[in-house]
Nucleic acid binder design. Structure first.
Lengths: 128, 128, 128, 128
DNA sequence: GTGGTCTAGACCACG
DNA sequence: GTGGTCTAGACCACA
């Protein structure tokens, strides 16, 4: 799994890290139960601060993507991620709303938009 | 046009304001050439600082949603917003990527996801 | 002579007006001694405020481009504009400095820059 | 690098700051990848408010002269500034137009004008 | 009265 | 300690 961070992005590094790990899971590059590098190792690999990695891991844990064992270290959640619940759909919808509003302003047709979503969706499943 | 801000949200107020105005344009509640309240009036209405409003306006202007007319004040861009270009689609795609990745992890099917997008998309066009 | 104002520009209207009149003189569309519309007429023509026209006229007068007679009204300075003096060259240089600095940063070659200047220069003299 | 601001000037301080930094890049006093003082440090150095410095930095960033690195802070854009494009040449031309029109009115010959441009251009490259 | 600029001081997210 | 956000109050240029 390759992690690429953009230090010039406005997106916080810990968020980028989270997103990349989630993307890895979605692409099945990271499978349930698989071990992730320790906070220290990950930080050293990426040349970033321990706190930054830790923050990403803590949030991933809190959102049910990973487990942090004192001994076994960090592993992808073996039972799969917590499924979509009410709260998640609400978050999802509110994150899509502004994106779609802007797309409409810019005259992106519904089909065009849905095609793009499909394309991205498939880009994850192709790897399956 | 009703603007509702969430002062508890982690999303900056000026961003919320931007999004609501963009949503207003998408819903055709705000039509091309229509005037927006002055920074001062808007700030007073919302109970926020005029600089916060100004920041939102400046960004909307820079992104082509509004323009600042020396006589009419702040108005919705009359020619419609700059259409979707290469750069926009790139931004759009990178904003959708992490959202879709998470949806996949949470076992949201492609159809389910697309339905949600459709629903949101239509919620803007219903007002037409 | 055609005057076109951009009410959406960041450049003040009175400045645009000044520049257009100066351009008119440079292009010999306006010749020495020629009359300009009164403040009122000009303001009505352009749909702008009296004060705005007045400010432009006052500055043009102060810089030696026009004369304002109580009776004859506003006329292009019959003796030609005050020639370039020390102070003018200093102003000219300091207005060119930042422009040229940016051009250099953007890898515009000296020849490229000078060609552009020549082209613009000629665009005024062609009308002669 | 020496920055000199004129607090009496009508040119906004943040604009002066921008111009001086651009001049510094043109003169190669600031080289690609080099770090700039933090907004706070720069503000303290110049005896101005940090928001003023921030505004200059934000605009320089938006125009591609600098970028804000999460680890290194503010740095001169390492890949060099975005090269001259269509839009830039248009801006350049419209900034030169009024300057040249006035020069013509003041009987500055084309050669005289071009010599001045050359002189200024060289004043940047001498430092190379 | 409008937007543009500048100052000042505060809190927070980030690394 | 860094930049990002928000507030507040002041002055000015513009129309």
């Amino acid at each position: 799994m390759f992690l690429t961070l953009d230090f010039e992005s406005t997106i916080p590094i810990y968020t980028q890290l989270k997103q990349q790990i989630i993307a890895g899971i979605a692409k099945k590059e990271l499978s349930a139960g698989e071990a992730l590098p320790s906070v220290r190792a990950m930080a050293a690999d990426l040349g970033i601060n321990l706190h930054t990695v830790n923050k990403a891991y803590q949030q991933l844990k809190q959102e049910g993507f990973i487990l942090i064992h004192r001994q076994k270290g960090v592993v992808i959640h073996p039972d799969g991620v917590a499924k979509a619940d009410q709260a998640y759909f609400q978050r999802l919808e509110s994150s899509l709303h502004p994106i779609i509003a802007e797309a409409i302003c810019r005259d992106v047709s519904k089909d065009e938009f849905l095609s793009l979503c499909k394309k991205i969706y498939d880009s994850y499943h192709m790897k399956e």
